[in-house]
Write a protein that binds this DNA or RNA. Sequence first.
DNA 1: CTCACTAATGTAACGCCGCTATAGCCGAGG
DNA 2: CCTCGGCTATAGCGGCGTTACATTAGTGAG
Lengths: 208, 208
Amino acid sequence: MPAKVTVLRSREVESEATRRAILDAAEHLLATVGEAGLSIREVCARAGVTAPTIYHHFGDKAALIARVVDDCFAAFERAFAHRTAPHDPVEALRWAFDRYVEYGLRHRIHYRLMFGTRHARPSTPGLASYDNLRRRVMAIADAGRLRAPLEDATAAFWASVHGVTSLLISEFWSPENPAIALVRDAMIDQLTIPRLAKPRRTKGTSHE
Amino acid sequence: MPAKVTVLRSREVESEATRRAILDAAEHLLATVGEAGLSIREVCARAGVTAPTIYHHFGDKAALIARVVDDCFAAFERAFAHRTAPHDPVEALRWAFDRYVEYGLRHRIHYRLMFGTRHARPSTPGLASYDNLRRRVMAIADAGRLRAPLEDATAAFWASVHGVTSLLISEFWSPENPAIALVRDAMIDQLTIPRLAKPRRTKGTSHE
DNA sequence: CTCACTAATGTAACGCCGCTATAGCCGAGG
DNA sequence: CCTCGGCTATAGCGGCGTTACATTAGTGAG
């Protein structure tokens, strides 16, 4: 019985296999030689197809790369989902900061493609990724421990972790730079309340 | 007497003129169509020379761009020098943050070339630019108002302003995003002491 | 003043690249 | 069985960075 389906759709299955072969080859080359170094011709050689096949399935080089980047966002979120975050929402955010930097450092080229330049409109996986961060900040707000508006605080955290990751990827910094933790803790200490104290707007109300 | 020098070196002068023509054409194209869009052939057409002339003077495309980037760093520092900073060192740093973002936003492509990827070893103008920031932070430290080691604080400030600028350039943020000031003030409030109080290591010692 | 030398520039070409008009293959449906 | 249409290959276009080679024109020595 499964044979029937397989036989009936053998053509589509074959076509989909070709798509995957192309995507796999593109992803591998992207991680190896980067966007500038990736050539359609090399993808062809690795995937065992010829150029028109790629253009038939993906349109052009930019669309192919955009497709790979979408898969990268999925992998990016998986990097967070695989491990379990601390229970305390503020500590969970600190933890997420480190995971974010860690991922960026391990997938430099992919990170640049995801966040280095905006490719057309922000993709759905990209938005989902940002929503993930917002949910973490919202957990802090729900605990009454956020010192700034939700949207602003989320954006601010993103900017700081993105800045750190960018400098690491560009090799302006080494991964041992103490400034990494300094940025992380400065932003968290300033925008959140460490314990369950009355949330006050003026800074420096918690003695020690 | 100056005629003697001019005549004797007429050849060098001419050669230097073509150098400048090439650099100007490259800078204009770079700001217009970006690094990927810039082609040696187009530079040739604009500068009124042929390809071997460019390779004779600069080596290859990357070296030509690196040379343009060096000029960008000079323009970058000029953007700070033209205006006068506030006297208070902390406010001067806040002011520098805004000038930095402002420059990045006005010269998106150049900023990306300067800080987006490391081009070979950090150029001399690039190092000078970073030293400028460190001097501002040092002024705060000299006033006994810095809460972290000089090098770490300098790096942390750089990361935060770079993160903000990157997101603005990539158009993930709009220039009106309140998170810009939030990042700026969070880092400054956390790493500096607002008035002339006794510098203490624990956070939150200055009431109001 | 002459002339060989050398730096500066031009000619033409090589081997890449992204992309596509066109044609052929082959499973799907009648 | 035969047609039909989606998938793939052949071959080629124009453009790219780069370079071997030829050519020009100031320069310094005799």
